[in-house]
Write a protein that binds this DNA or RNA. Sequence first.
DNA 1: GCCGTTTTCGGCCCGACTGTTTTCAGTCG
Length: 600
Amino acid sequence: MEDKFSNRAVSSLLRSIATVYVLKDENRFRVVAYERAADAVDHLAREIKDIWQDKKLEEIPGVGKAISSHLDEYFRTGHSRHFDEILKKIPESIFVLMQIPTIGPKKAYKLVMNLNLFDKDTAVEDLKKACLRGKIAQMETFGEKSQSDILQAIGIYEKRSIKEERMILPYAFSIAEQIIDYLKQKPYFKRIDKLGSLRRMVETIGDVDLAAVVDVKYNQQAIDHFIAYPKTIKIDNAGDKKASIIVTPNVRVDLRIQEKNSYGSMLQYFTGSKNHNIRLREFALKKNYSLSEYGITKVESSLSVKATADEAKIKKFNSEERFYGYLGLRWIPPEIREGTDEIELAAKGQLPSLVDLRDIKGDLHVHSNFDLQPSHDLGEDSFEAMIKKAEDLGYQYVGFSEHNPKSSLLDKDVAAILKKRRLVIDKIKAKNPGLKIFSGLEVDILPNGHLALPEGCPDYLDYLIVSVHSAFDLDAEAMTNRVLEALKNPKVRILGHPTGRYFGKREGFALKWEKIFDFVKKNGIALEVNAWPERLDLPDLLVREAVNTGVKLIINTDAHAASHLNNMFYGVEVARRGWAQNKNIVNCLDASDFKNWLVG
DNA sequence: GCCGTTTTCGGCCCGACTGTTTTCAGTCG
């Protein structure tokens, strides 16, 4: 049973209210207001229940006096009389049918009323039967085609209910890169870009969307080449400007082709996000411009004489820089196009200069294959191989941080192992004067907040990363106390993968972030942005809060093999989505400053 | 119902696609 106070539950409640208002022909802007509030709740970095407790509901953009007072009652008593009253007006099964693609409020309403689908638990099944019996085709405004479309959509809905997972970013990214390499074999692909969430580097991706500049005379050849991609298992559709294929293992890839002269508007439009584009169009409208994927048109006020065709001509843009520039904005990095305050800041020329992969000067979360009988998995490669890779990347420093030895060992044996490791690392240091090498350890935070490391052992180490690897189900209060207890050890410099989330396995646990931020800030501890593909943790939204609070971050790969050091790119992208600049990131410091931060 | 360097009242994003319409409604991104 899902928590009725979770962000997802609250946003779904708000969306349901919007649906009722659609069906009751309520003022459409009131509908939009509820949808916007729901969107805002979906994009919160923290639990809305905590925000309610802090009495800050009205600070959520799109939540005003009315909605916040209804939500206040909802959180206090478990119900909002106002919302309940509204929801009573339509059958619950409508919300169920709306989960089926292509079925929105209007269609769901008609289907429920005409076919008596009032049982929410059987509504989908009953709808399916009605399709098979040919009942839909007989209904007004429906036909044979919509009947078979609905049947097909139910199929998609059923599959999705069982298993619909978005890909993790690095996975989608590599699929895209392979296809781009393939497309580039043909010289008529003048330029290729990723679009949508992939270009914005969102942590999970649905479809792979691509755009290409092609001279119009080569459109057909370009599309033919695309759909002939060797890993294509199905061609969904292929026009002369757009095609969709499914590639192995089962990923949908869309390609859009545009001529150079309007490529900028197209790139902008399909990069999104939806919220960013909405805000941007609102911003433009105040200057009497109307935006579309084809360019910018001047809007005439209704009082003026109708514009001649020539005046209304669309202004095209071959680059995004020009597109944004025409509106009086600085170009906005795709990673922060999420419709928060990026447009306002771009207008004032106050966008931050986001951290760049080239700013990273070292990696402090690296697991070698030095066998200290670790509590978790050992790395695959030697100290030397890792060092070689770090040097190839141009790093100034690297820190080794195997997992602590397993707790079944005697304390004195752990001490002996760590002492020996220290000697080995000291020798390696002497052989590699060009790279600063630190000796650390990633230590489990036990459920009681103690470290899985015997007293005295930190003496053999330069620094500790502490991480939660067990007992993920404590409540926020207990988990916060557990983590704070662990952070008290003076050798601790980094809180590793702070939410513990792991894509495909578990959600992150909740923490009282104000308390964590406060403690790490006072004690100069860095929160890790872990670049491991299934982690990407801290998540971007919390990165932004940390940055706003003045908390220091460190981007690490958690590498268990030399090749994993390349994942730094993804960690940097998470940080960029959180508006981090290099001044927020300790491993952007030069070696001597970094050493001062790490060991004093 | 929300919101404010052109507004505390009067506004509120844009277009494609599809199927059912004979001029548009519904859904989606």
